[in-house]
């Protein structure tokens, strides 16, 4: 098709290409708009549920799941209930506490390990690489009981510190993405710094880190948001009854998933989801540029 067209006279070709281009752009926009609607549809539903305040004829808030998409009545009662009648504010602070500390520790750990694995050569390097690959293949939750009791031996169960420890300790294995990033940095940069008399630590802090902003932010972003999303490990470590210690994910989980739960709290649950999502989503959006670079670096080098 294309070839035939390019054989035609110049002016006609010019116009038809222009027209084709314009219509293809229109189609592209149409597809993008359609896809965006599909992608936003479930997210909007959560938001709408959080401000859905329909009452039944006995003036009782209908908090169950309903089958209409757009609420018939809007209001902020769910948020009021969330902050007054649940421990949500406490859960929020807990999560902030855990993620603030664990993201610093994990980022440090991940980056140093990645750098060492990428740029230094030493005897057990290959072994460590293989160990990391192998360990990554075992399903994690089988070892949850073991981790619970190891934490107990350290007198840490049912505390937020235990969570911090577990999240940070796992960071040593998640160095692949950052390693991929460091691999691209030319060795000559390091060598010249070494010739100037800088030691390895200095090279890392003074040469490597300043040019690694994307990967630092990428690693930190994932480490920071992790505790807001984990409802499996945190549940085992913190325990069900210890509600004051819960993180948002665990607290919200127990709101909805139990054998004897009141399913009339669904709208309150979604209000909680919205509050959790706001900081995380805005962080992601603000750091989007670096996140893309991180994702690219990591996946390409595998």
């Amino acid at each position: 098709m294309m070839k035939q067209m390019s054989g035609a006279q110049a002016p006609v070709k010019y116009r038809s290409v222009k027209a084709a281009e314009r219509s293809s752009t229109a189609v592209s926009y149409l597809i993008l708009i359609l896809l965006s609607l599909i992608w936003l549809y479930p997210i909007l539903w959560i938001i709408l549920n959080s401000i859905r305040t329909e009452y039944n004829d006995q003036n009782q808030l209908i908090g169950i799941v309903v089958s209409h998409y757009f609420p018939k009545q809007l209001g902020f009662e769910n948020f009021v209930n969330l902050f007054r009648n649940t421990l949500f504010p406490r859960w929020f602070l807990n999560t902030l506490f855990v993620s603030s500390i664990s993201f610093v520790l994990s980022t440090l750990l991940t980056l140093t390990v990645a750098y060492v694995m990428s740029k230094l050569r030493f005897s057990f390097r290959k072994k460590f690489l293989n160990l990391a690959i192998i360990l990554g293949l075992f399903p994690g939750f089988m070892s949850m009981i073991a981790i619970y009791y190891i934490l107990k031996a350290l007198q840490l169960t049912q505390t937020l510190f235990a969570l911090i420890l577990v999240y940070s300790a796992g960071a040593g294995l998640g160095f692949y993405v950052a390693k991929g990033f460091f691999d691209i940095i030319p060795n000559s940069l390091i060598e010249s710094a070494r010739l100037d008399g800088a030691n390895n630590a200095k090279v890392f802090t003074k040469i490597i880190l300043p040019i690694s902003k994307p990967i630092i932010i990428y690693t930190a972003l994932l480490a920071f948001t992790g505790p807001w999303m984990d409802f499996i490990f945190a549940r085992v470590i913190l325990g069900e009854t210890n509600r004051e210690m819960h993180t948002v994910a665990v607290g919200l989980y127990y709101m909805l998933y139990g054998e004897r739960v009141d399913s009339n709290v669904f709208t309150i649950f979604t209000a909680g989801c919205v509050i959790v999502a706001i900081p995380i989503v805005s962080l992601f959006l603000a750091m989007q540029k670096y996140y893309i670079e991180g994702v690219t670096a990591g996946s390409v080098k595998g």
Binding site: N56, Q60, I64, S263
Partner: peptide, 14 residues
């Protein structure tokens, strides 16, 4: 009886 709350929210006075 543990389902009373949601049932009441769903039907109200009905």
């Amino acid at each position: 009886s543990w389902d009373f709350g949601p049932a009441k929210a769903a039907l109200g006075s009905k």
